[in-house]
Nucleic acid binder design. Structure first.
Length: 252
DNA sequence: ATAGAAGCTAGTTTTACATCA
DNA sequence: CGTGATGTAAAACTAGCTTCT
């Protein structure tokens, strides 16, 4: 018990039905709370009173999509939350919402559990919320945003990979066109002296062998490891496979 | 078959903070 | 050094969808 708790002079008078107040617990289901306490630390107490009012506002406005679980959890942890994490559900005095800034420890723990499973079941969510002294809803939102960030990052990586791929293919295309041009010139000069083999199309004379890969394969391991699944169920690696198959089909 | 709860994604808004002129 | 504009990351929100009971 800290100094403030020992000296808590709160006098509660309560009637009626459940409007939640900061100091209200499950055992103390008063809905009308006449607070006659003497502020031990006037500045802190004043700001906390604003906080408790804003929590009610938040309950009604900002968290309209809150689940029953969350509401129960909030009731259970109402006091603890306001005491140990003033960020949670803390609105500014003008009514605008105040953004929660997670601590380094909270972020680390969230990241760690995200590494284990990127989605949470209800039990895991509750447990994590309890551990971090946050609301299950906040855990849920964090995971939603984290998934979105991961996906975006993945898409950006795929995009840059495809760009490189495209550049490589263009280079290859230019090189082959140049080579073809040279071959044609050579062919025109010496056509009548050449054996029949040289008159065959280039792709027959210079077939793609199993050792030759799609130009994108030169990009390194990351390209081969990438397994982004597109909406139609394909992937980059699958595209590479298709490319090779198509080349083989042309030759056969 | 239908309703409602819960969870998800995608997109948006809002806030805090950093950077720069 | 202070200040306002601007950009960015992230928390929180909304709408719409699917799944399950």
């Amino acid at each position: 018990m800290n100094e403030r708790e020992r000296c808590d002079t709160t006098l509660g008078l309560g009637i009626g039905v459940g409007i939640k107040r900061e100091r209200q617990t499950k055992q103390n289901q008063r809905s009308f709370w006449l607070d006659l306490s003497l502020p031990l630390h006037p500045k802190i107490e004043a700001s906390e009173h604003v906080h408790s009012y804003d929590n009610e506002k938040d309950d009604q406005d900002s968290f309209s999509s809150k689940t029953i679980d969350d509401q129960e959890e909030e009731e259970e942890r109402g006091i603890k939350r306001s005491a140990s994490n003033t960020n949670v559900y803390n609105n500014n005095s003008d009514g605008s919402r105040k953004k929660l800034k997670l601590t380094a420890e909270q972020t680390t723990l969230l990241e760690d559990s995200f590494k284990i499973h990127c989605t949470l079941n209800t039990g895991q969510k509750q447990e994590l919320a309890k551990k971090l002294n946050l609301l299950p809803r906040q855990i849920e939102v964090w995971f939603q945003n984290r998934r979105a960030r991961t996906k975006l990052k993945h898409i950006e990586q795929e995009c840059s990979l495809l760009k490189k791929c495209c550049e490589t293919l263009n280079d290859e295309n230019r090189r082959l066109k140049k080579e073809l041009q040279e071959m044609r010139c050579y062919s025109l000069k010496f056509d009548h002296h050449q054996p029949p083999h040289s008159q065959l199309p280039l792709y027959v004379r210079y077939p793609i062998t199993s050792e030759m890969h799609h130009p994108c394969d030169k990009l390194g391991k990351s390209g081969q490891d990438t397994k982004t699944v597109f909406e139609n169920g394909g992937s980059i690696t699958q595209m590479h496979g298709n490319y090779k198959r198509n080349a083989a089909d042309k030759l056969s």
